[in-house]
């Protein structure tokens, strides 16, 4: 209950700050020096937030779709041969630092939102894929046996049993992807993507801690909200199946 009130307050605070950032100048004034501005105004914060979220949203949707398709393919009889390899590639792929992936995407994509999107997409594939794999292969064997025994076709088993049962775990993967992408997208501003990272970097370049704080704060609050939102969805999906503890 207290948690919900706090989350509600966070949403309101975030909206108020994004719509009228200058009315919060008093909050950030103590962190400035030499009469530097307390609020970043080169680009409106709400527009940076929107393009940040759009970037993350596109990346998460794209990685979820592709990762789900791949996970379904390698768990079907025709794709089973790829399963062990897929597991290895996922494990190895997740050790690749997101920043390095971002930097390496620049020569291919040029500067701007492109390389950021590619890096977020590639990096986001892995958690969803890993979780979808766990969800699709980790089901109670009796359920699969009963589904086959009652005459569900392979496709019906996938859509009516396997995917609905894997849903909470898949949502967990999406949560990881979304939260990681949200943070990594800020680094995208080093390659000229329009994200909230722009505010932080402006703060770093002009030694204005107020900018660093407000950029970090907005991303942090959104991350907490995303995290909680996904967890609520996961709990709802899991409660239906009685799989939650």
């Amino acid at each position: 209950m207290i948690g919900r009130v706090l989350l509600g307050a966070a949403v309101l605070f975030l909206l108020a700050f994004l719509l009228t950032p200058t009315s919060f100048a008093w909050l950030f004034q103590p962190f400035t020096r030499n009469n530097a501005p307390a609020i970043y105004t080169q680009t409106p914060l709400w527009s940076l937030t929107l393009s940040h979220l759009a970037l993350v949203g596109m990346a998460v949707v794209a990685s979820t779709v592709i990762a789900l398709v791949l996970a379904v393919l390698v768990t079907r009889p025709a794709g089973r041969e790829f399963l062990p390899l897929a597991r290895t590639v996922t494990a190895v792929g997740q050790t690749f630092p997101p920043v390095a992936v971002l930097a390496l995407a620049v020569p291919i994509m040029g500067f701007g939102a492109g390389p950021t999107l590619v890096a977020l997409f590639l990096y986001g594939l892995l958690p969803v894929f890993e979780n979808a794999l766990a969800g699709l292969t980790g089901q109670p064997p009796q359920v699969a046996e009963a589904a086959r025994g009652m005459g569900l076709t392979p496709r019906q088993r996938l859509t009516q049993v396997d995917l609905p049962l894997a849903l909470p775990v898949i949502l967990g993967g999406m949560r990881l992807t979304a939260v990681i992408s949200l943070g990594t997208a800020t680094i995208g501003s080093t390659v000229a993507a329009k994200t909230l990272g722009e505010v932080i970097i402006a703060g770093l370049l002009s030694s204005n801690t107020a900018f660093v704080l407000q950029g970090g704060m907005v991303v942090g609050i959104i991350a907490v909200l995303l995290h909680e939102g996904f967890q609520t969805l996961e709990r709802m999906a899991a409660a239906r199946t009685g799989l939650n503890r």
Partner: peptide, 18 residues
């Protein structure tokens, strides 16, 4: 600790400077 993790790395590094 969870909330600490949600602070974007770029910002956390930046806050440490001052």
């Amino acid at each position: 600790l969870n909330i600490l993790q949600t602070v974007p790395s770029l910002a956390l590094f930046g806050i440490m400077i001052p």
